[in-house]
Amino acid sequence: MTSMTNTSTATRGEAHDTPPESGGVRKPWNPLTPPPLQITHTPGWRLTVQPDPSPTDVTCIVFQTTQPDFGLDFEADVYADGTTSSCICPTGVSPCTSNREGWTPDALADLATATERLQVWLDDCATALQWTIDHTAEISRRLRAGGRTPAQE
């Protein structure tokens, strides 16, 4: 997964990247309102278009999040051709250390206590992916209608 920047533009003062879990409303994508999640994700629900040189390869980045304890990133995307993509991959900071000291018993114990946070994070990723799959047809239709977010239509 590559690092991507937010390419959406707000119109009429509407916030396109306000996460629903923070109480924000994403009017431009209604009725495509993502469900609330258990925890706050950064950046979380995006629903932003990542333009591509080819109109058939336009991508909507639906959801992105990082799980810092275990050094994992998750992303769910929809393409204009109606396909979806999702991945979990290591971030630049991973729990593997290459220093000579290696892990300490305290560091391992701290990581063990983070497993509950990992479980909640994975549950939210599953919710985001299911919502993405359920709305792939509508998102890809909107992408084919010009490769723009509904706010730009």
Rank of each mutant, 00 (worst) to 15 (best):
M1S: 08
T2E: 06
T2D: 08
T2Y: 06
M4S: 07
M4F: 11
T5M: 10
T5C: 04
T5D: 09
T7D: 12
T9F: 14
G13T: 09
E14N: 08
E14A: 09
D17L: 08
D17T: 14
T18A: 13
P19W: 03
P19I: 03
P19Y: 01
P20E: 04
E21T: 10
G24N: 07
V25N: 14
K27P: 03
P28M: 11
N30M: 15
N30S: 15
N30R: 15
T33S: 15
P34E: 03
I39T: 12
H41G: 01
G44L: 00
G44N: 05
W45Q: 01
W45M: 04
W45L: 02
D52Y: 09
P53W: 07
P53I: 08
S54A: 13
P55I: 14
D57A: 11
V58N: 04
I61M: 06
I61F: 04
F63K: 00
Q64I: 02
T65H: 00
T65D: 01
T65M: 03
Q67E: 06
G71H: 01
D73W: 00
F74K: 03
E75R: 05
V78T: 05
T84F: 07
S85A: 12
C89F: 06
C89T: 10
C89Q: 11
P90N: 09
G92F: 07
S94P: 07
C96S: 15
T97N: 11
N99S: 12
R100L: 14
E101D: 12
E101K: 15
G102K: 06
W103A: 14
W103M: 14
W103G: 07
T104P: 08
T104W: 10
P105C: 04
A107K: 15
A107L: 14
A112Y: 06
A112V: 08
T113W: 11
E116N: 12
R117P: 00
V120Q: 01
D123P: 01
D124K: 01
C125H: 00
A128Y: 01
Q130S: 11
W131I: 05
E138S: 07
E138I: 13
R141Y: 12
